[in-house]
Design a binder for these strands. Structure first.
Lengths: 118, 118
DNA sequence: TTGACAGTTGAATATTTACTCAACTATAAT
DNA sequence: ATTATAGTTGAGTAAATATTCAACTGTCAA
């Protein structure tokens, strides 16, 4: 047992393991990048939107109807998905059609969802 | 354009698309199961714990030291990971050693993290 | 050119979630 | 037995996030 050098409310029990694992840790920014993606698809509304768009491109009103939510709420979530580069859109008159950003995103999502079913 | 039957603040624009996508939607419980997993790994602290455990089994104190957090905070997050069946533990005297639940979980995580790097 | 509607936005509110704090259990050592 | 430490737990707090609300832009149709 060694005294700990950093803030923590207890002693270090296995300093060898600790030192070893420390060298394997990534930097903060890498962990942030990883969690950002999972955080985005870790929300029921957003997953339902992605699932819907996987089946067909849709406009905001259709999505609002599908999920029984307001246009505003859907629009806010679509913004999150846009910022995470998971969806793209095209405008046609007053209507904005959303779809999955690209095949890579589609595969990511399908892959992720398939894992769950096991 | 058709009148909408459910709550929503706008009209249905493409009823054909809507009907089609509706049939493809999963039930609430399935979406909940999917998002539960991603929500769990969508947190920086938990991903760091999982990453550490991927390298070596560790006790609560070691994890607290590694992440410069209190035992309590780590313990609370380990509880989340236990509930999501992502980690398992063994007790030895006063010490509790945590490790990844099984190979399937390990693969899930490694897979997920690799996707990000692309 | 006026009205209606699709969609967006920012601020306010509501809800969820991470962490702190203090009390507790269990095990080990003296 | 008593003391010290590893770990857990529940309640409370703080921070993050989802949704609501109201105001706004842009486009279409009369």
């Amino acid at each position: 047992m060694t005294k700990n050098e950093f803030y923590c409310d207890c002693t270090i029990i296995h300093s060898d393991v600790l030192e070893c694992v420390k060298t394997k840790m990534l930097d903060k920014s890498e962990f942030d990048g990883i969690t950002k993606f999972f955080k985005t698809i870790g929300d029921s509304t957003r997953v339902q939107i992605l699932w819907a768009l996987y089946n067909h491109e849709m406009c905001v009103c259709d999505l609002a109807n599908l999920l029984s939510m307001t246009k505003s709420a859907i629009s806010h979530q679509l913004r999150e998905l846009r910022l995470a580069n998971l969806v793209k859109f095209r405008k046609s008159g007053k209507t904005v059609y959303y779809s999955l950003a690209d095949d890579h995103v589609t595969n990511l999502i399908i892959n992720a969802l398939n894992h769950i079913k096991e």
